[in-house]
């Protein structure tokens, strides 16, 4: 795995930098981890499609030399489903945010997981809507402040890992932007996994979440991430899941994958070998 400081320019579109992300934002660390994972796997950038939604995370594909499909709010996985079925030979990596994947795109998220579509999903979870100015997200913890919950959120939050597991994802992992060595390994693992693979990355938004909740600047927020989470070994019990915020790989199973099942169906119905 490329170490920090190593040249990732084969995968990064440096002429589009600096990025739109605020100083201290964790999204750049995640983008670097994706580039490091692609470098590690030695994929031809032209054979990879990075599919993004709308929001801060959705801007990621512009900073890559791979193919990029920057889609609409919440629908990245629906675009990816059509693309992957049409072109199973292309590697599809979906980048999405917590609002993008779990609010407006929640339906596509659970259905892509249910189908066990062969895509890797990197979910940037900063617990808030960043690009629109710090509103409450479905991941905002109870009691946390946002510009639409200044007195503290009263809605229970979604847990992306539990949601993906319940929906049928065959690979489910969580890490944080504090875990800079582990993050690219998990992303590479997810990209190589033959099925729907989720890596949820807890990331810091010092501009909104940090400021509104008095969590300090990026360094303090990274330590806060570390303290919020606990490395866990799969299989994890429901009690452990409920007790804190475990990180690690929670599921890695080989199950029938959608594009392969579809190809088998075509073959059974008499389609040609290149169908």
């Amino acid at each position: 795995m490329p170490r920090i400081g190593e040249d990732l320019q084969r995968y990064l579109r440096t002429e589009m930098m600096p990025t739109v992300w605020c100083p201290g934002c964790g999204h750049g660390n995640i983008a670097r981890a994706i580039a490091a994972a692609l470098e590690h796997l030695a994929y031809d950038p032209e054979r990879v499609v990075l599919v993004g939604g709308i929001g801060c995370s959705g801007r990621t594909p512009f900073y890559f030399r791979t193919n990029a499909l920057h889609t609409t709010h919440g629908r990245a996985l629906a675009f990816a489903t059509g693309l992957k079925l049409a072109r199973p030979d292309l590697k599809v990596v979906v980048v999405t945010g917590d609002g993008d994947a779990l609010a407006i795109g929640g339906n596509h998220f659970i259905h892509a997981a249910r189908r066990n579509l062969d895509v890797a999903v990197v979910l940037y979870n900063n617990s808030i809507y960043g690009m629109t100015g710090g509103q409450q997200a479905p991941t905002t913890p109870v009691g946390a402040r946002s510009t639409t919950s200044l007195s503290g959120a009263i809605e229970p939050a979604f847990d992306a890992v539990e949601l993906a597991m319940a929906a049928g994802a065959s690979y489910v992992a969580r890490t944080t932007t504090f875990d800079v060595q582990e993050m690219p390994l998990l992303i590479a693992d997810a990209i190589e996994h033959p099925g729907f693979a989720l890596v949820e990355v807890l990331t810091q938004c010092p501009t909104y979440y940090g400021r509104l909740n008095r969590l300090g600047e990026a360094p303090e927020m990274l330590l806060w991430e570390r303290d919020q989470t606990e490395p866990a070994q799969a299989p994890i019990t429901r009690e452990e899941m409920a007790a804190g915020r475990p990180i690690g790989v929670f599921r890695r199973e080989v199950r029938p994958e959608f594009t392969r099942s579809y190809a088998a169906l075509c073959e059974r119905l008499g389609a040609g070998a290149d169908g």
């Binding site: 599919v51 499909l69 629908r75 693309l83 079925l85 596509h108």
Partner: peptide, 15 residues
């Protein structure tokens, strides 16, 4: 929404 999204994604796959 997903249906037309999938169609556009497939079109970019050359379908």
């Amino acid at each position: 929404l997903g249906a037309l999204a999938a169609v556009v994604g497939a079109a970019w796959g050359g379908a």
